[in-house]
């Protein structure tokens, strides 16, 4: 039996909003540690990895590990039926062919129950090496979203370069070009507004903006986003997931293959 209850059901709604347009179908791996998912987008250019730790749930029971394969747009449609303040409980029997979602409104006697069909998916898992990166940048997530959205008006790709204590995003296209330069901020009163840059070596790398704009759909999950870059390896865009108390619940990490000169 698998059962996971989340009082702040809005977190699950936000996670689905952040992945449903990138990945059609994926499997949740549920174990005593928590729920995780790894999936490539349909063109296999990017990879998304989600982790929700067991102790972040208000109730979590997983007698034996289960893989819940599902259509993410179906799951997302069902989650749209839950209110932002609802408690969400996921339930799956050990050998069932569906998952049950129960939504409970706060301070009300209303509960609703939905079922989503499960699928057997041939998931291909990729091993992600745990390597140090040349550049790590932490910045406000809404700023990253804005930059990606603005630069996509100019071109299809962004060139990210980092030197000393600044990071530069540049795009060019038929109409002209655009650059956004961000400098490291002094330790601010509001940590969520700060930009911090840690650089081992300068870097310049290009990425498709279409994917970065997909990743930015995770913005409501976290006030800060972390970018990690090294020469000729995929970019990592990470949003940590915290609950209203600020406790660490897990993360969404997106990996994007660079565009390479040949």
């Amino acid at each position: 039996m698998f059962e996971a209850k989340l009082i702040q059901g809005a977190i699950l709604k936000k996670i689905l909003d952040a992945i449903k347009d990138l990945v059609n179908e994926a499997s949740w791996d549920c174990s005593s540690q928590g729920m995780s998912l790894q999936a490539m987008d349909t063109s296999h250019v990017s990879l998304v990895a989600v982790q929700m730790k067991a102790d972040g749930f208000d109730k979590y029971r997983c007698d034996r590990s289960v893989t819940l394969g599902m259509n993410l747009s179906s799951l997302s449609k069902i989650l749209k039926c839950a209110g932002n303040d609802d408690t969400i409980t996921l339930k799956a029997p050990d050998d069932g062919d569906k998952i049950t979602l129960v939504f409970e409104a706060k301070n009300e006697s209303e509960t609703s129950e939905y079922e989503v069909k499960l699928m057997n998916l041939d998931s291909e898992y990729l091993g992600i090496p745990d390597t140090p990166y040349s550049v790590n940048v932490k910045m406000p997530s809404h700023k990253f979203q804005r930059i990606c959205r603005d630069l996509q008006q100019i071109g299809d790709a962004v060139t990210i370069s980092c030197a000393k204590d600044s990071i530069r995003f540049a795009a060019k296209g038929d109409l002209g070009s655009g650059t956004v330069n961000l400098c490291q901020t002094a330790s601010a009163d509001k940590p969520e507004d700060s930009v911090s840059i840690s650089m081992q070596e300068p870097i310049i790398q290009s990425f498709a903006l279409k994917y970065l704009n997909h990743f930015a759909k995770a913005t409501p999950l976290s006030p800060q986003v972390s970018l990690s870059l090294s020469p000729d390896v995929p970019l990592v865009v990470e949003y940590s997931i915290t609950d209203d108390d600020g406790s660490d619940f897990g993360y969404i990490r997106y990996y994007l293959a660079p565009k390479i000169d040949e």
Binding site: S43, H44, E124, P234, A257, K259, I260, D261, E262
Partner: peptide
């Protein structure tokens, strides 16, 4: 510039 796939960098396990 050419777009690589993610599997070009991360091996299947």
């Amino acid at each position: 510039m050419s777009q690589k796939t993610i599997a070009h960098f991360f091996n299947a396990r």
